[in-house]
Amino acid sequence: TETYKYDDKREAEKAAEEFRRRGITVTVEERNGTWVLESK
């Protein structure tokens, strides 16, 4: 599991889209005002 942090929800979702395009499952969730993207 890799974790990436973003200040902006849009950025996180854009990154998530890129991962999914490569066939990687990711989750995006907000933690304490930071958007956390996790690849499984």
Rank of each mutant, 00 (worst) to 15 (best):
A15Y: 04
E38A: 10
E11L: 10
T1W: 15
E30G: 04
V28L: 13
T27L: 08
E18M: 10
F19K: 03
E29Q: 11
F19Q: 03
A16C: 05
V36E: 04
T34E: 12
N32F: 06
T25F: 14
L37W: 01
E30I: 07
V36K: 02
W35S: 01
E11K: 09
K40D: 10
R31F: 08
K40M: 11
L37M: 04
E11Y: 04
E17L: 09
L37K: 00
K14T: 08
V36N: 03
K5I: 15
S39R: 14
N32A: 06
K9N: 03
G23L: 02
G23E: 01
E11V: 07
E13M: 13
T25W: 15
K14W: 07
E38K: 11
G33K: 03
E29R: 11
D7M: 14
T34V: 15
D7Y: 14
E38R: 11
A16V: 06
T25L: 14
R10S: 11
E29A: 10
R22F: 06
T1V: 12
V26C: 09
T1H: 12
E2V: 15
R22W: 07
E30V: 07
T27H: 09
G33Y: 02
R10F: 12
E29Y: 15
T1E: 09
V28I: 14
E17P: 00
D7T: 15
R20W: 07
T34P: 01
V36S: 03
L37C: 04
T27Q: 08
K5V: 15
E11G: 05
S39F: 15
V28E: 01
K40Q: 12
E38T: 15
R22L: 10
D8N: 14
A15R: 05
V26Q: 01
T3M: 11
T25N: 13
I24P: 00
Y4G: 05
R22H: 07
E18F: 09
N32M: 05
A16D: 00
K9I: 09
R31A: 05
E13S: 04
Y6C: 03
F19A: 03
G33W: 02
G23R: 02
I24R: 08
F19E: 01
D8Q: 06
E11Q: 10
D7F: 14
E29W: 11
E38F: 14
V28N: 00
K9P: 10
I24E: 05
R20V: 04
A12M: 04
E17G: 05
A15D: 04
E13K: 04
E17D: 10
G33Q: 03
K40C: 12
V36L: 06
A16W: 03
K14Q: 10
Y6F: 14
Y6V: 01
K14S: 08
G23D: 02
V36D: 02
R22C: 09
A12I: 02
E30M: 10
E30S: 07
K14Y: 07
Y4Q: 07
I24H: 09
T3K: 10
K40F: 13
E11S: 12
E18D: 09
K5Y: 15
K9D: 02
F19D: 00
D7C: 14
A16E: 03
D8S: 15
T3V: 13
F19W: 09
V36W: 12
R21S: 08
E38P: 01
D8M: 05
R21D: 04
T34F: 15
K5S: 13
K5F: 15
R20Q: 06
L37D: 00
I24T: 04
T34N: 09
F19I: 04
R21H: 05
E2M: 14
K5W: 14
E11R: 06
R10P: 04
E18I: 08
W35L: 01
R21V: 06
R20I: 06
E38M: 14
E17K: 07
E2L: 14
T25H: 13
R31H: 09
K9F: 10
R20L: 08
D7E: 12
V26N: 00
A12R: 00
F19T: 01
T1P: 11
R10W: 12
V26D: 00
A15E: 03
S39N: 09
E30F: 15
D8E: 06
K5H: 14
T1Q: 11
R20F: 08
V28M: 09
R21T: 05
E13Q: 08
R10K: 11
E29D: 05
Y6P: 01
L37V: 14
V26T: 04
D8C: 07
E17H: 06
V36H: 07
Y4N: 06
I24G: 05
K14L: 11
Y4I: 09
R21I: 08
D7L: 14
G33S: 03
R31S: 06
E18T: 06
R31K: 09
G23V: 00
K9R: 12
K5Q: 12
K9E: 08
K40L: 13
E13T: 05
R31E: 06
E38S: 12
I24V: 09
A16R: 04
K9T: 02
E18G: 08
K14N: 08
K5M: 13
E13W: 09
T3H: 10
E29F: 14
R20M: 07
K9L: 10
A16S: 03
R31L: 08
D8W: 03
T27S: 09
K14F: 07
V26R: 01
L37G: 01
E13L: 12
R22N: 06
F19P: 00
V36Y: 14
Y6D: 00
K5P: 04
E2T: 14
E2Y: 11
R21E: 04
E17M: 09
S39Y: 15
K9Q: 10
E17C: 10
R22M: 09
W35A: 01
A15K: 08
A15T: 04
